Amino acid sequence: MGSESVKVVARCRPLDDREKTLCCKMVLSMDVHRCQCFIEKPGAQDEPPKQFTFDGTYYINQTTEQLYNEIAYPLIEGVTEGYNGTIFAYGQTGSGKSFTMQGVSEPATQKGVIPRAFEHIFESIQCAENTKFLVRASYLEIYNEEVRDLLGIKKKIIFETRRHPICSL
């Protein structure tokens, strides 16, 4: 696990049915080989696009299966070896967090990271001999400084957020 580090990856989901009905246009393009994203300002053809570079990029023609195999699989392998792992999906409403994490049932290549990770972990447990496992998973939503456990039995429970006095500079 010594070569593991925090990776920042950008994923562009395909337009959904509503966006297609509204004739929305893509303003984002990617150079997936250079891990760069380019965002054009609509109606400003004279302005160069904003450019961002990441550790990985996945455009609309790439699948959740690809993203999982390249980004999440090594993390989950570490989890099966006893290390903690976190996937932090961040973005504005409608940006594709649920599309990536929960996925869609069809096509199978777009099944989400969470169901793939669960399958991976439980297949590893089934194959392990003379080993005990304790599996704990959290699926937290942080919205307007309210934290909810989306896997919890009581979805209405809001966890209190606190700041550590030393870290609140």
Rank of each mutant, 00 (worst) to 15 (best):
Tyr68Val: 03
Pro42Cys: 13
Phe52Pro: 08
Val104Trp: 05
Ile166Arg: 13
Cys23Pro: 02
Arg11Phe: 05
Cys37Asn: 09
Gly78Ala: 09
Val135His: 09
Asp46Ser: 15
Ile166Ala: 11
Cys12Lys: 11
Tyr59Trp: 14
Arg18Leu: 07
Asp31Gln: 03
Gly78Asp: 14
Phe88Met: 14
Ser168Pro: 07
Val135Lys: 09
Asn69Leu: 11
Glu65Gln: 13
Phe52Ala: 05
Leu28Lys: 00
Gly112Ile: 00
Glu19Thr: 00
Gln51Phe: 00
Tyr68Asn: 04
Gln66Met: 13
Leu150Ser: 04
Lys154Pro: 02
Ser168Asn: 15
Val27Trp: 01
Arg136Lys: 15
Pro74Thr: 06
Lys111Ser: 00
Glu119Cys: 10
Pro14Asn: 07
Asp46Thr: 14
Arg116Trp: 02
Val113Asp: 03
Ala10Val: 09
Ile71Pro: 06
Ser98Leu: 01
Leu67Lys: 05
Val27Met: 08
Leu134Lys: 14
Tyr83Thr: 10
Tyr143Asn: 02
Asn144Val: 09
Cys37Arg: 07
Cys127Asp: 13
Ile157Thr: 15
Asn144Tyr: 03
Tyr90Arg: 05
Ile60Arg: 03
Glu141Ile: 12
Thr53Asp: 05
Cys23Thr: 06
Tyr90Phe: 08
Glu160His: 11
Gly91Pro: 14
Leu75Arg: 03
Thr131Glu: 10
Asp55Ser: 00
Arg162Phe: 11
Pro42Phe: 12
Asn130Arg: 14
Tyr68Lys: 05
Lys50Pro: 07
Gly85Phe: 01
Phe133Gly: 04
Thr53Lys: 12
Thr53Trp: 02
Lys7Met: 12
Gln66Cys: 10
Asn144His: 14
Lys155Pro: 14
Glu40Arg: 15
Tyr83Cys: 10
Gly103Asp: 11
Val104Cys: 15
Glu77His: 13
Gly96Thr: 05
Ser29Tyr: 03
Leu150Asp: 07
Val147Glu: 07
Leu28Asp: 00
Thr100Glu: 02
Asp55Phe: 00
Gly82Arg: 01
Asn130Ser: 13
Ala108Pro: 07
Phe54Gln: 02
Leu134Gln: 15
Glu141Thr: 11
Val9Gln: 04
Gln36Tyr: 01
Gln92Cys: 08
Asp55Cys: 01
Ile125Met: 08
Ile125Val: 15
Leu22Thr: 00
Pro107Cys: 05
Thr63Tyr: 04
Thr80Leu: 01
Thr64Lys: 02
Phe122Thr: 10
Pro49Trp: 03
Arg148Phe: 03
Arg13Asn: 11
Gly103Pro: 12
Pro14Gln: 04
Lys111His: 02
Glu81Tyr: 08
Ile142Asp: 07
Met30Ile: 06
Leu67Thr: 06
Ile76Tyr: 06
Val6Cys: 07
Arg136Ile: 14
Ile166Glu: 14
Ser98Ala: 01
Gly56Ala: 08
Ile125Lys: 04
Met1Ala: 12
Ser105Asn: 13
His120Arg: 08
Gln102Arg: 01
Phe122Trp: 08
Gln36Val: 11
Gly112Leu: 00
Met1Glu: 12
Gln110Lys: 03
Thr93Trp: 00
Met101Leu: 06
Met1Cys: 10
Glu65Ala: 12
Ile60Pro: 13
